[in-house]
């Protein structure tokens, strides 16, 4: 790992100021992704601002829902009584990711910032537009089994690896950020981005902005929820495909529904067209199958990930069946 300058501010304003003029500095929270990337030489930083002493660990109810501090660890969020009672989908998704040790270190803000697990991104000898813009995409003609089926282009077919993000996009979360120009809120669906012409950018944060909190609005999705993660081993592996389903059911009718997929795109993939189709319809497998078919419109596979074109809709159907209780 290269050497770097280190700072440990106690206040948010100091942290922002420390990186304000630096284009190559990084904030350090749990370090589970950043320290790994630094060891691999994927990230070479000249300054680290250790934000672990900032007062950003709260998990609290608010008049409109809950607020989760950027430094609340994944374990603290998943185990929180407030989260389990109001947003069990978030607990399920977090516990499907990583290992207990990593969840004890990884933070909410850090999870939003984690980089792709595309092996070519990690291999500093391979061309990768995300790591070195303009160098090319090795995955396009390479071993692209783990890669995107939605929203990709020839510049980048990497996927966002997070489970937590899939639940947060389904739950319509809002990201609070703070920077030299002040504070602003970003809708979760607008936080991560598709590769477009800038695959090096994972999200819409401005340079030097710091995530301070994630808010989740109150919703009726506290009972019929499920997070299905399909991976190469039973636990502790990244998703080939994952599906988050949250249903608000009254008298066997779907009053409201949230659906999202992970492991399929450069960002957590919300299935709004399928949600619209299901709203107002009765709970049954046929409707779930039709919703999954709608969700797959526009999907495009590459040489080694064609299996995802079958796996993804089946994951959506199964997540809906589990969430609604018609399968167990």
């Amino acid at each position: 790992m290269n050497q770097f300058q280190y700072s440990r501010p106690a206040e948010i304003a100091s942290a922002i100021k420390l990186l304000a003029k630096d284009s190559n500095g990084h904030f350090l929270a749990g370090g589970t992704n950043l320290v790994d990337l630094m060891k691999m030489g994927v990230v070479v930083t000249n300054k680290l601002v250790d934000i672990n002493h900032l007062p950003l660990k709260q998990i609290q109810k608010t008049p409109t829902g809950i607020t989760i501090g950027a430094l609340a660890t994944n374990s603290e969020v998943a185990d929180s009584a407030i989260v389990k009672e109001n947003f069990p989908l978030l607990s399920l998704a977090i516990n499907a990711g990583a290992s207990p040790q990593l969840r004890n270190m990884a933070t909410t803000g850090g999870n939003l910032m984690q980089r792709t697990r595309c092996p070519y991104f990690f291999d500093i000898t391979a061309p990768c537009n995300k790591r070195v813009p303009g160098s090319g995409c090795s995955a396009l003609q390479g071993y692209n089994r783990m890669h995107a089926i939605f929203g990709a282009n020839d510049q980048c077919i990497a996927v966002n690896p997070s489970d937590m993000n899939v639940a947060l996009t389904a739950l319509d979360a809002t990201v609070h950020v703070s920077g030299v120009k002040g504070e602003r809120k970003i809708k979760f669906a607008d936080f991560h981005r598709l590769p477009g012409d800038h695959p090096e950018l994972d999200n819409t944060l401005q340079k030097g902005e710091l995530i301070t909190a994630v808010d989740i609005p109150a919703s009726p999705f506290n009972k019929n929820v499920y997070y299905l993660k399909i991976r190469d081993r039973t636990s502790y592996a990244f998703a080939l495909v994952s599906a988050a389903a949250a249903l608000h059911i009254e008298n066997n009718t779907i009053k409201g529904v949230r659906l999202a997929m992970g492991g399929v795109a450069h960002k957590p993939w919300r299935l709004t067209a399928a949600e619209t189709f299901l709203t107002g319809k009765p709970v049954n497998e046929d409707n779930f199958k039709q919703a999954a078919q709608i969700a797959m419109q526009g999907a495009k596979a590459y040489e080694y990930n064609k299996f995802k074109l079958k796996l993804a809709p089946n994951a959506v159907i199964q997540a809906l069946k589990m969430a609604s209780g018609i399968a167990s």
């Binding site: 440990r8 350090l28 370090g31 589970t32 320290v35 790994d36 040790q101 990593l102 270190m105």
Partner: peptide, 19 residues
């Protein structure tokens, strides 16, 4: 590399000592 920090298990390989 699992150790306990303040009673919580973590991966010590990904934790900078200074933190």
């Amino acid at each position: 590399c699992t150790v306990h920090v303040n009673g919580v298990r973590i991966n010590s390989c990904l934790s900078l000592a200074i933190t």
